[in-house]
Nucleic acid binder design. Sequence first.
DNA 1: CTAGGGTTAG
Length: 362
Amino acid sequence: MCVRGLAPFDVLEGLINSYEGDDSSPAVFDALVRACTQFGATDGAYEVIKKLRMDSCWVTIHAWNNFLGQLLKLNEIDRFWKVYKEMISYGYSENVNTFNLIVYALCKECRLLEAISEFYRMLKNEIWPNVVTFNMIIDGACKMGNLELALKLVRKMGVMSGGCVRPNSVTYNCIINGFCKIGNIALAEEVRIEMTKVGIESNERTYGTLIDGHARGGSLEEVFKLCNEMVERGLIPNTVVYNTVIHWLYNVEDMEGASLLLSDMIDKRICPDQYTYSILTKGLCRNGYVTEALRLNNQVIGKNLIEDAFSHNILINYMCRSKNIAGAKPLLGSMFVHGLIPDLVTYGSLIDGYWRTARMEM
DNA sequence: CTAGGGTTAG
């Protein structure tokens, strides 16, 4: 598909034509579905599943799981439920991965209690939850600020799984992040100590999380201490870590520090990403360098490095806040030209801008 | 299949 630019249906046709019953493996159809989702051909994946059904050549639960997982990754939760129900209506039964996807979908919708009910439905169906199941519920609890429940689950996951499942680094990182986000760095650090005690080393994400937590709390000193510590342990600060620190340096108006770090990032060949560009855009705007922010935007958009609305939203919002509708309009135009879809924030900012300039009808 | 970073409305 990649090399020859074939459409999913072309590949499928070839597979069906060369399919020789018992001498062939139906896993090849699952592989095609996976190829489609990895390729970004989400609708193609679904069409393949449907076509095979009509040819009474069914894909397995693995392909459905793969497709359902892709929908969650794209945040198409409504479609996820629709497809899940469809799959069940064809008589498939959920395996552990399907259940995990259901738990994940419920957590994404903040339906934490239902996610926990799903855990018990798994037990009833004799499908044993694994560490991923627990981690998703624990992270869901953390994201909703319910650290008490998250901690309770960590303590009880052994018993709840009949001694089969123990916390791993993902579990601990979720809890650490939860405490950082509610501003309780002290407890976040305590959790890290506990994690070390049970023999799980801090990884790149642990450091990334704690660095953001300390920066949020205003202790940039701790931030640099942690950066050094991670390097000493052989972990190289990646794009996420640089983005975090640059973001918080701009926030305290340390332009020089932010610039130095950006140069360091380029020297060390750590690739900037969309987060970097929106952080720079915001940092330049809020510190009074709007012209530079616009110039940066023009540079990166020409190179097709931008795939989401963030940077434009930041600029549009900045223009609108300073009642500069004339400055915001071309940015909206630029979004359309480059295939970026204006979202709630884009329109919210523009409506606010018109409101400020007393042009209610607009 | 799960964990860290970027946007709006006082």
